[in-house]
């Protein structure tokens, strides 16, 4: 096993083993899936379970996701945890728009996914009417295990590039087409394989 003593003087010539080659797209996707930071978008009961997922017992940091960002600009994944009211919907959309690309959405719980038991005037019947949802986690509220499963599913989709392909075709995670807000500067696009 080659040991590199000093890269600056030896260069990479000292590396005889332990070199992995790969396409840059794959590496980018791998890196994205391994440290996706969630935006803390807690709304209702599900937010409590989301916090429980982050706490000691379930320990979401095993998946590189313990850094709940308060600012949407630093986050990659928005976990919509709870029921979205008509009053909250514009706020939710704004937070989503503030997130940097690439970004993903997990709809946590039945209320966020479909309105759940609250089929009434106040609740948006599915957050996919507002933002493109990539993974729906069922349950009322989903247990931390379910959320971890949803996160793992999303990681798999990110790593396989499935989500980005679908979004390029349909423009959305779900069925609803979401118009992009024109950016003032040109975004750097990575991993568009």
């Amino acid at each position: 096993m080659g040991v590199v003593g000093d890269v600056l003087s030896d260069g990479l010539g000292g590396l005889s083993h332990n070199v992995i080659t790969g396409r840059i797209e794959d590496l980018v996707k791998w890196a994205r899936s391994r440290s996706s930071w969630p935006a803390s978008f807690g709304l209702a009961c599900c937010a409590i379970e989301m916090m429980a997922t982050g706490a000691a017992h379930y320990d979401i940091s095993r998946f590189g996701m313990e850094v709940f960002r308060a600012s949407p600009r630093q986050a990659d994944i928005m976990i919509v945890a709870g029921r979205v009211s008509q009053k909250m919907a514009p706020v939710l959309r704004q937070v989503y728009d503030q997130m940097m690309e690439p970004k993903w959405v997990i709809s946590m719980g039945v209320c966020a996914s479909s309105g759940g038991m609250f089929n009434n005037y106040a609740i948006v019947q599915g957050v996919d009417q507002i933002v493109p949802v990539d993974v729906y986690a069922p349950g009322c509220p989903p247990t931390p295990e379910t959320l971890i499963h949803a996160i793992e599913t999303l990681h798999g989709l990110i790593e396989s590039g499935e989500i980005m392909r679908r979004r390029e075709v349909t423009g959305a995670g779900a069925d609803v087409h979401v118009e992009e807000i024109p950016a003032t500067s040109v975004p750097v696009l990575l991993g568009s394989s």
């Binding site: 008509q86 514009p90 009434n120 005037y121």
Partner: peptide
């Protein structure tokens, strides 16, 4: 409710059912 909401939801003649999203100045 949002300040531009129309109607008073808990009146008996106000329908319960789900309604489309009302956006207010959203991009």
């Amino acid at each position: 409710m949002p300040e531009d909401w129309i109607g008073h939801p808990l009146r008996k003649d106000y329908e319960t059912g789900s309604i489309p999203v009302q956006f207010k100045g959203a991009p």
